[in-house]
Amino acid sequence: MDTEHQVPIWFFVGGLLLIYGVLIFGGGVYAWLSPPPVEHRVKLFEYHADIWWGLLLVGVGTLYLWLNWPWGKKGEA
């Protein structure tokens, strides 16, 4: 198996986490600016977990992408 030119799995992980992070962060900001009715809110809504959890996903995803960028250096499986 030619793994020299294989995109590392960590790259896929980073990409997916980054996309999810952006979506969840965006959803969180929207819910903060335009909150749903009280009866439809989840418990601890006031902590806005989606905003900081989304940011965490963006951070981890970006880190994995940066460390495992396959173009311009050798990847490994």
């Binding site: 999810y20 959803g27 601890l44 809504f45 977990a49 989606d50």
Partner: peptide, 11 residues
């Protein structure tokens, strides 16, 4: 269902 709002629930 109790703690995760839109997006987080999808995840």
């Amino acid at each position: 269902g109790q703690y995760l709002g839109p997006g987080l629930l999808g995840l």
